[in-house]
């Protein structure tokens, strides 16, 4: 009898902690970042050999559209594009294009799946694989 009461108390305590754990952490989400910022930037970014920012942005837009995203916003000055894909889930992606070295553009993507940040390398690899294909195609179509 005593033993089971102890156990019940313990379970109750764990339940409370797990509840508070979630609640206290919810404000921490504002500044939350993944453990390794360097690693995250690394697989969210690719360099492309081009100096044409506009063409890169337009290719990003059409790649996102090809993947079933609808474009929410785009800005030429900031070089940013945001899109959302819906299919029973919500996948939101922001891609920025910045001139890096001479004749190079740095493309960076970050994504949100429902209510979590995507910190898995694979989705980014898939996105950049599609982007690379269309960058190659447009480069060879127009030049």
């Amino acid at each position: 009898m005593k033993m089971s009461r102890c156990l019940a108390l313990l379970l109750g305590a764990v339940m409370l902690v797990s509840m508070f754990g979630c609640q206290a952490a919810s404000r921490n989400q504002i500044m939350a970042a993944s453990a390794s910022q360097v690693e995250l930037r690394n697989y969210q970014s690719r360099r492309f050999e081009t100096e044409n920012k506009e063409k890169t942005l337009r290719t990003v837009i059409s790649t996102l559209q090809d993947l079933g995203f609808i474009i929410d916003k785009a800005d030429m000055v900031l070089g940013s594009v945001s899109g959302t894909k819906l299919g029973g889930y919500s996948l939101r992606m922001t891609v920025t294009v910045r001139p890096k070295a001479q004749n190079q553009m740095l493309v960076r993507a970050n994504a949100q799946y429902n209510i979590t940040a995507v910190e898995d390398p694979e989705p980014y690899q898939q996105f950049f694989a599609s982007l690379e294909k269309s960058m190659f195609l447009t480069a060879h179509m127009d030049e």
Partner: peptide, 9 residues
């Protein structure tokens, strides 16, 4: 966290 479905991208 839940994972992004493979076919999504």
């Amino acid at each position: 966290a839940a994972k992004v479905p493979k076919q999504a991208l």
